[in-house]
């Protein structure tokens, strides 16, 4: 097992190098050996894919020594050769002699030993996907942005599906990685889009079940992380948040709890006649009102939940009716149906 792990690590390093400028020193023989190495790992995948114990042991080792650009899972071995080929094909730094030898190595022709070893079909599929993603990234506007979010949401769900239900920590780590390294605002938007997928009609029952499972994973992770939840509820637009909250009761509850917590950080400035933040980073009154109003307008049950919550807070705060004494009273005055 250990040599196999070492081979995998070396190949990960090889993949990393294949994107850089070091390939300018490669010759045809080096390219041939790299591709042979990739095919060897492909054979390993096909041989042990159906054996759970070996797969699990290998994945544990891969995760322990995971690098930033390394292979993420055992399943990645299946497409290692195709990824290497694509990277070499796209890399302009590849030496001319090696570049001329590459097509012959990838497409040997009728004299090949085994037809199954030829990666043409898999290469075409991966190249097409990459082109599509590249095209989507270059587009602008709302509709294409929405399409981009939906695509990223689907990719996120696909990724979560790949990780399966056997190991729930894998999904958590994936999401943690996205949050830690990705553009956070974009990640939040993708997550919101993913959470809204449940509202879309699904043709198959199995798909619904699978979607629900991924949604629960994502929701669970979001609710568990205080930092991410606060950022999610603070930075996403009010209307979008209200839509997401309307689909998931647990999230609406958490969202409302956060809003009420933020409300307590405002204090009334008697001379200005307004509720002002205690610190600069606190949410201002106008945004607080806007978010609560959006919740009230999204769903009737959300409005009821908001009003019940605010009225309960008002009662605990002394049940004052005069403006300027209790922020709950003033929020209720600002909300439709709250007075």
């Amino acid at each position: 097992m250990e040599p196999l792990v070492q081979y995998t690590e070396r190949f990960s390093e090889l993949l990393a190098v294949s994107c850089g400028t070091l390939v300018s020193t490669w010759d045809a023989a080096t390219v041939r050996r790299a591709l042979q190495w990739a095919r060897y790992l492909f054979h390993v995948y096909r041989r042990f894919a159906s054996r759970g114990r070996v797969r699990e042991a290998l994945e544990r080792r891969l995760h322990v020594r995971r690098g930033p650009l390394g292979l993420r899972s055992f399943a990645a071995l299946e497409s290692g050769d195709v990824r290497l080929a694509l990277r070499l094909l796209r890399n302009r730094a590849l030496a001319p002699a090696a570049a001329r030898a590459l097509p012959g190595l990838l497409f040997p022709g009728p004299a090949a030993d085994n037809v199954d070893d030829v990666p043409q079909s898999r290469l075409v599929l991966l190249a097409r996907r990459g082109s599509a993603l590249h095209l989507l990234f270059r587009l602008g506007g709302d509709a294409p942005k929405g399409a981009l979010l939906r695509t990223h949401a689907e990719l996120l769900y696909a990724r979560l599906q790949e990780l399966g239900g056997a190991d729930s920590t894998a999904a958590r780590k994936l999401l943690d990685t996205l949050w830690e390294h990705g553009p956070r605002e974009h990640v939040l938007s993708v997550m919101a889009e993913a959470l809204l997928r449940e509202a879309d009609p699904e043709p198959a029952q199995a798909a619904d079940s699978a979607g629900a499972d991924e949604t629960q994973k994502l929701l669970h992770w979001l609710l568990e992380s205080t930092e991410v939840l606060a950022a999610f509820c603070r930075h996403l637009p009010a209307k979008r948040l209200a839509s997401v909250a309307g689909c998931h009761h647990a999230l609406s509850r958490a969202y409302l709890d956060l809003l009420t917590a933020w409300a307590t950080r405002l204090h009334y400035d008697l001379q200005k006649g307004a509720w002002v933040p205690t610190q600069l980073e606190d949410m201002p009154w106008e945004e607080l009102c806007l978010r609560l109003q959006s919740l009230c307008q999204a769903q009737p049950f959300l409005q009821e939940e908001v009003l019940v919550t605010l009225r309960s807070c008002k009662a605990l705060d002394g049940d004052f009716e005069v403006p300027g004494m209790s922020i709950w009273t003033d929020l209720l005055l600002a909300l439709p149906g709250g007075a």
Partner: peptide, 16 residues
Amino acid sequence: KEALSEFSQCLELLFR
């Protein structure tokens, strides 16, 4: 409670 409400209303009028 009533006292606080009246004082607050007085202040609201005085400042607003």
